[in-house]
């Protein structure tokens, strides 16, 4: 489990090339899924179109349970993209992990706190942007009469990012321990590791889906807090 990271400095910024690779892979997978799923669009949906429309309705449901559709409708694309991207990212690390020369290359991008916190901060940034855009500067600052709101901003972004990271990273660590350590400790260990690995992988799929759902739901909750008038 003591894998190194393929760090690389470029233009004064540190890049973890493994993250870069996995972000690219996850984005490609999401894009291809969505792109190929919406090729043969018809009034009577078939095959992948049904699945895509189900995602659309699912996100619509999440938004509708948090805010008025008139204000929430514009966040649908964001919600769908976030949901699919985080779900795919969570799934990527499940079947295997690839390390080369003691450096971990293939993993879930969401098993890195930097990535999840980036997404969280991006979401929080969006909430501020839409708050100013839809309620004006005056309405935006009115929300800060209560000083606890400041604290909320930090805790929101931290919990949003770290929750996702913690769940996925823990899942990968345990998978790594089961498949990497226990399975190589002898024949008995290999056989003994099969069942818990299977169980844990199944559970991780569940956790990965739930975390993607929670991330999108909380995104919509924060957005509605900022955007709607009754808060």
């Amino acid at each position: 489990m003591n894998h190194g990271a393929p760090l690389h400095n470029f233009m004064g910024l540190t890049f973890n090339l493994s993250n870069v690779l996995m972000i690219t892979v996850a984005s490609l997978v999401v894009f291809l899924l969505a792109f190929l799923g919406t090729r043969k669009l018809a009034m009577k949906p078939t095959g992948m179109q049904n699945f895509m429309e189900w995602i659309m309705d699912f996100v619509k449901g999440i938004i509708n349970s948090n805010m008025d559709w008139r204000t929430g409708g514009q966040f649908q694309l964001l919600g769908m993209t976030l949901l699919m991207y985080i779900f795919v990212s969570n799934m990527l690390g499940l079947p295997f992990a690839i390390s080369y020369d003691g450096v971990l290359w293939w993993k879930s991008p969401t098993a890195d706190p930097v990535i999840t916190l980036t997404l969280a901060v991006m979401v929080l940034g969006l909430t501020h942007y839409y708050a100013i855009k839809m309620k004006g500067v005056k309405g935006y600052f009115k929300a800060y009469k209560n000083p606890m709101t400041f604290v909320e901003e930090f805790t929101n972004s931290l919990t949003l990012g770290l929750r996702l990271y913690g769940n996925i990273y823990a899942g990968e660590v345990l998978l790594g321990l089961l498949a990497g350590s226990l399975a190589f400790s002898g024949a008995a260990g290999f056989i003994g590791a099969i069942v818990p690995t299977l169980v844990w992988q199944g559970y991780s799929i569940f956790v990965g889906s739930i975390q993607a759902f929670i991330f999108v739901t909380l995104t919509m909750v924060y957005l509605s807090h900022k955007v709607s008038d009754d808060h």
């Binding site: 470029f10 972000i23 919406t38 694309l77 990535i115 980036t118 997404l119």
Partner: peptide, 28 residues
Amino acid sequence: NGGDMLYQLVVFIILLALLKKFAWGPLM
């Protein structure tokens, strides 16, 4: 590693734009 952050942000925005153009738009 600020690079990862930047990369993640940029890639996500690109993904959002591409999906809007090629997938969600037509689907919607």
